[in-house]
């Protein structure tokens, strides 16, 4: 009997594809309809992380960019400037080494390093385990610095509230349309290294237009982690997106 709908037919034909080449004949072959998202398991882990963040009033951000956009410098400056105002925590994703986590810890903020080995992105499961070790305080700002890669991390939900794409002006202004999946997934784009603009041909307006082609509602802030220009707007964005503290239970 069919295992899908209970009908008497031991074999279903789907569409015009190669399946029809498989005559069921007298073999034990049978069709099984699965209908499952390939990333369904990741989505479950991400939901678990998200529930934890919600319960504890944690704002979790997934920082994504190419290698060399200045993510870690931007993060260390952010942590240094915000320390003492909020509980802070960092998950660092890199293929190898704990260099970045070491840089973060040098600011006094606790950080967990995930080495993905050959992997090109973090996933919900890795972040779940990192949370067990890191155990961020309630109300924390949690920055998850993804592997430097504008392609693969777009597809993997970690349970974050927002993806934040960091693009530096030493890259091409057309990166948003070259890597559209990432800019479609990000809610905020930080255009970093703006202190270098006088030395470059980078067209800021065109870059912003490209980003909005892909994602009309994307917010864009221009910052320089080196000089601090524009960083206050970024901090305001963080404040505005922190979850409201839940009223104490009576």
């Amino acid at each position: 009997m069919c295992t899908v709908c209970g009908c008497g037919d031991a074999h279903h034909h789907y569409g015009q594809g190669v399946a029809r080449a498989h005559a069921p004949g007298l073999s034990q072959a049978r069709m099984v309809k699965i209908e499952q998202d390939i990333l369904g398991k990741n989505a479950e882990y991400a939901q678990r992380n998200r529930a934890r963040f919600r319960e504890q009033g944690i704002l979790a951000l997934n920082l994504v960019s190419s290698p060399g956009s200045g993510k870690t410098s931007l993060l260390t400056r952010t942590l240094t400037d915000l320390k003492g105002q909020y509980p802070l925590a960092v998950i660092e994703g890199d293929q190898e080494t704990s260099q970045d986590a070491d840089r973060i810890r040098a600011t006094g903020v606790s950080a967990v390093q995930i080495n993905t080995g050959k992997g090109c992105h973090l996933d919900g499961h890795m972040v779940g385990h990192a949370l067990e070790t890191l155990n961020p305080d309630p109300g924390a700002l949690l920055f998850i610095e993804n592997v430097g890669n504008l392609v693969c991390p777009a597809a993997f939900d970690l349970g974050e509230a927002h993806k934040v794409a960091i693009l530096s002006v030493t890259e091409g202004e057309d990166k948003p349309i070259k890597y559209p999946d990432m800019f479609a997934a990000a809610d905020l784009m930080l255009l970093n290294k703006t202190d270098l603009l006088p030395h470059l041909d980078f067209d800021v307006a065109l870059c912003m237009e490209y980003a909005r082609r892909i994602h009309p509602d994307i917010e864009i802030l221009q910052v320089s982690a080196k000089t601090g220009a524009g960083m206050e707007q970024w901090y305001q964005w963080l404040r505005a997106h922190r979850p409201e503290p839940e009223s104490p239970a009576r």
Binding site: H22, A29, K33, I34, I38, A155
Partner: peptide, 11 residues
């Protein structure tokens, strides 16, 4: 934009 497993034939 979906990524799904639809069906399979097994024995």
């Amino acid at each position: 934009d979906q990524m799904r497993i639809k069906a399979m034939e097994v024995e």
